[in-house]
Nucleic acid binder design. Structure first.
Lengths: 108, 108
DNA sequence: CAGTCGCTTGGTAATTTGGCCAAATAGAAT
DNA sequence: ATTCTATTTGGCCAAATTACCAAGCGACTG
């Protein structure tokens, strides 16, 4: 793998990596419904504010969300709506996995 | 976040996590062209065989690829072709990131 | 049936991640 | 100005990830 190709893969994989945590994926789903401030997300997630803030930072650095400070709150929203379209395929993978599990059971 | 919701997010995030490594993403791209044995992928990646084998194992456990032993070789292939469709959105994110970078530069 | 080949697994060390607490910051309100 | 309030950052520690080497395993080959 030459270095250009590697760089490309690394850039892409960073996006996937950012989505590769349950809490972050949850927040992306919530943000799909509309913008939320950190305190709202903190309440929804049920973790320390600092933890939520760091997860949001990961999503922001990846370019998945953007933030805007208004008054005391910082509001986050999806920067690229198409992120949601990713979930369709993911669901297909999960369904196929489940079917295979079923098949294995019936086979036994 | 209730435990059912969390379980769902965790299941989905595992798929993203599996794609969240440059080498694994590279292999998925290669497998999109057709099945490859571990030795071919090892040559393409340019890492230790054991390293490549472990990455493939991560993809297999996630349900992204499947393997088939034929003779001495083990051939891997994509299990769900739609995985490729994920890349479209990822590219959009990267392009938007790049544009923003440009905008920042011009602004200064 | 001994040797080889392709791959996987176990061991280990270096690095990264994820969580909470505590401290710092920025802005609003009194 | 001082005091809140919402969020971010730094420190710390446990757990997970990644890479290589070495050893193991299963299936052809001579």
């Amino acid at each position: 793998m030459d270095s250009l190709r590697y760089a490309r893969c690394e850039a892409r994989s960073r996006i996937f990596k950012a989505l590769g945590h349950p809490t972050r994926l949850f927040m992306v789903e919530e943000l799909a419904k509309g913008e939320r401030c950190v305190c709202e997300l903190t309440a929804l997630v049920g973790a320390d504010t600092s933890t939520v803030s760091k997860h949001l930072s990961v999503l922001r650095v990846a370019g998945i969300v953007q933030d805007e400070k208004r008054g005391l709150q910082v509001y986050y929203r999806l920067r690229i709506p198409c992120v949601l379209s990713l979930f369709g395929c993911i669901e297909t993978v999960l369904e196929t996995n489940a079917k295979d599990q079923m098949a294995l059971l019936h086979q036994a």
